[in-house]
Amino acid sequence: MKLRITIDGKAYEAEVEILDAEGSAPEYPPYPPAPAAYVAAEPPEMIIAAQTGEVASSEKECRSPVTGMVVKVEVEPGQLVQTNDVVVVLESMKMEMQITAQQTAAVKNVLVTEGSAVKVNQLLVEFE
Rank of each mutant, 00 (worst) to 15 (best):
Q122D: 13
V88K: 00
V39D: 10
V125I: 15
A21C: 02
K2Q: 15
S64I: 02
P32A: 07
Q102E: 14
P26N: 08
K10Y: 07
E114V: 05
G9R: 13
M93C: 09
E54R: 15
A34W: 13
E114F: 04
G68C: 07
Y31T: 12
G23V: 12
K72A: 11
E54I: 06
L123I: 12
A37I: 13
S116C: 10
Y12K: 14
G53S: 05
A41C: 06
V89D: 04
V16M: 11
Q122W: 03
N109G: 02
L80K: 12
P29F: 04
G9T: 12
V55C: 04
V73L: 07
S116N: 09
Q79F: 07
P65E: 00
D8Y: 11
E96V: 08
V39W: 07
K2V: 11
L3Q: 12
P43G: 00
N84Q: 11
V87R: 02
P33V: 13
T67G: 05
Q51H: 04
S92F: 09
E22V: 07
Y31M: 11
R63G: 03
V55E: 15
L124C: 00
D8Q: 15
V70P: 00
I7Q: 14
P32Q: 10
A56G: 04
P77K: 11
E76G: 11
A41P: 06
V125M: 08
A14T: 14
A41I: 00
S57Q: 09
T67K: 02
G68R: 00
P65I: 00
E128A: 14
G78S: 09
V39E: 15
E96W: 11
V75T: 06
